[in-house]
Design a protein around this nucleic acid. Structure first.
Lengths: 117, 117
DNA sequence: TCCAATGGTATCCTTTTCGACACTATGGGC
DNA sequence: GCCCATAGTGTCGAAAAGGATACCATTGGA
């Protein structure tokens, strides 16, 4: 239960494309990454941003992003549990990619991004 | 059997990210798009580039890309069937995104892109 | 006549992903 | 004592994505 999709990248040069895609793909990862670009967030804070995600799903995505070294998870051993999520160094290098994705979406999708915002 | 993943984009602003992702996601779409950036290709030509894809899968991905208006499919009514695939206008606007994906992959993936190439 | 090549389609089956829902631990408020 | 919030985990099952395999039509070549 570690990898999202393919482990082996035995394709042609275009492979790097798929490899990158495999990290940010997964229904909510893109959005999570996007929101994290704005700064540290707590679990429920992220959850409130994504009204249609269940804890299980969010936990899952967060764990995968952490396993891929894109985000850091800081647990505060407090009584009301508190966990901070942050983009890691590596995660920050993904910013241009996320931004490219968002820019294209804003410019080319029929009614996404600005609509329902 | 049109959309790959989500139809409704009822999420927050980060939505555009997911929207774009939903177009280029799908196991082989990224690579197909990448190869198409080099120019027109015929069905079997693409197939030969992706040794692990079955016709069904390739046909599927190609149809979805076509339905999303990212590629054009030109059928020549000849006896040995011939079909050309090309990036559409819209598909070409995706080039920077694909490139961003590839660049990041080359730079940040343990051993993808250059390895096994 | 049979085989090969082209670009598919149809059918079946497995794997992966996603979503619903319930349950946990701790402490505070009422 | 009961419910709320925090940040999860576990199980179950449905749906979707992906893969294997076989089949179709046409025509040229051996």
């Amino acid at each position: 239960m570690g990898r999202t999709r393919h482990d082996r990248f035995d394709c042609s040069p275009g492979c790097a494309v798929e490899a990158t895609l495999s990290l940010i793909d997964g229904k909510w990862k893109g959005v999570v990454l996007y929101h994290l670009m704005a700064g540290t967030m707590r679990f429920n804070e992220i959850r409130r941003k994504l009204p249609n995600v269940t804890q299980r799903m969010l936990t899952n995505q967060l764990r995968e992003l952490e396993a891929d070294g894109l985000i850091t998870r800081t647990v505060f051993a407090q009584v009301p549990p508190r966990v901070d999520y942050d983009l890691s160094e590596r995660g920050r290098t993904l910013e241009p990619v996320i931004l490219a994705l968002k820019t294209w979406g804003d410019a080319n999708m029929p009614s996404a991004g600005s609509a329902a915002a």
